[in-house]
Simulated assay, not measured.
Amino acid sequence: MNAQRLFRTSPPRIAQRLRPTRRYTTKPTDPAPPQPHPPAQSPNPNQAPPPPKKAPSRVGTFYRNNTYPVLKSFLVALFTYQLAFYVWLKLEVVEEKSEQQGAIRGLEEEVKKMVAQQKRNVSDAVGKVADREDIKPEEKKKKGWLW
């Protein structure tokens, strides 16, 4: 059997296999289709022609051109302020902590001096009591159940 006859008589699945494998959506030599021109007049004569296009307003143009730079500057300034505030707060905390530690050291030294003073006062009082002769040493206690 010849291939043309087989192509004509075979079912579509087999016919697809027998067709050439290279396919083009358009022929490479075909030129691009021409672009349609817009109609000069509206198809409906009762319809009003479209209004002429307005020139963009100066305010709209200003905001369209300057919104991003202004926003960027604002965000950079906000970030800088927050960073400076955080650094300042950290320095304040460090300063307060060092002041409190200095106050604690001063109080600890004062407590040590007072304890030493109390020890001297107690030893002086014991020495005075020991020097008094009118106080007799305790007699030996009797050991036992009754006395």
Results as ranks from 00 to 15, higher is better:
residue 1 M to E: 02
residue 1 M to V: 00
residue 2 N to R: 12
residue 3 A to S: 10
residue 5 R to Q: 10
residue 8 R to C: 00
residue 10 S to E: 07
residue 11 P to R: 01
residue 12 P to E: 07
residue 13 R to I: 04
residue 13 R to L: 09
residue 14 I to N: 04
residue 16 Q to I: 05
residue 17 R to T: 15
residue 19 R to N: 04
residue 21 T to K: 12
residue 23 R to N: 08
residue 24 Y to N: 13
residue 24 Y to H: 13
residue 25 T to C: 00
residue 25 T to V: 00
residue 27 K to Y: 11
residue 28 P to L: 01
residue 29 T to L: 11
residue 30 D to R: 03
residue 30 D to N: 01
residue 31 P to R: 01
residue 33 P to R: 15
residue 33 P to V: 12
residue 34 P to I: 04
residue 35 Q to M: 14
residue 36 P to Q: 04
residue 36 P to A: 03
residue 39 P to A: 10
residue 39 P to C: 09
residue 39 P to W: 07
residue 40 A to N: 08
residue 41 Q to W: 15
residue 43 P to R: 00
residue 44 N to W: 03
residue 46 N to P: 02
residue 51 P to L: 04
residue 51 P to H: 01
residue 51 P to A: 05
residue 52 P to W: 02
residue 55 A to V: 12
residue 59 V to W: 13
residue 60 G to C: 06
residue 66 N to V: 04
residue 69 P to Y: 04
residue 70 V to S: 13
residue 71 L to V: 14
residue 71 L to F: 11
residue 74 F to Y: 14
residue 77 A to N: 11
residue 79 F to H: 12
residue 81 Y to L: 13
residue 84 A to F: 02
residue 86 Y to T: 15
residue 87 V to E: 06
residue 88 W to A: 09
residue 89 L to M: 11
residue 92 E to L: 15
residue 93 V to F: 04
residue 93 V to A: 10
residue 93 V to H: 11
residue 93 V to R: 07
residue 94 V to R: 03
residue 95 E to S: 04
residue 96 E to Y: 13
residue 99 E to G: 06
residue 100 Q to M: 11
residue 100 Q to T: 05
residue 101 Q to C: 03
residue 102 G to I: 04
residue 105 R to A: 13
residue 106 G to C: 03
residue 107 L to T: 07
residue 108 E to Y: 09
residue 110 E to C: 03
residue 111 V to L: 05
residue 112 K to E: 07
residue 112 K to Y: 02
residue 113 K to I: 01
residue 116 A to S: 08
residue 117 Q to M: 01
residue 120 R to H: 07
residue 121 N to P: 03
residue 123 S to V: 13
residue 126 V to N: 12
residue 127 G to Y: 09
residue 130 A to R: 13
residue 131 D to P: 01
residue 132 R to K: 12
residue 133 E to V: 15
residue 134 D to C: 02
residue 134 D to Y: 06
residue 135 I to D: 03
residue 135 I to L: 05
residue 137 P to Y: 13
residue 138 E to T: 00
residue 140 K to G: 07
residue 142 K to W: 02
residue 143 K to S: 14
residue 144 G to W: 02
residue 147 W to N: 14
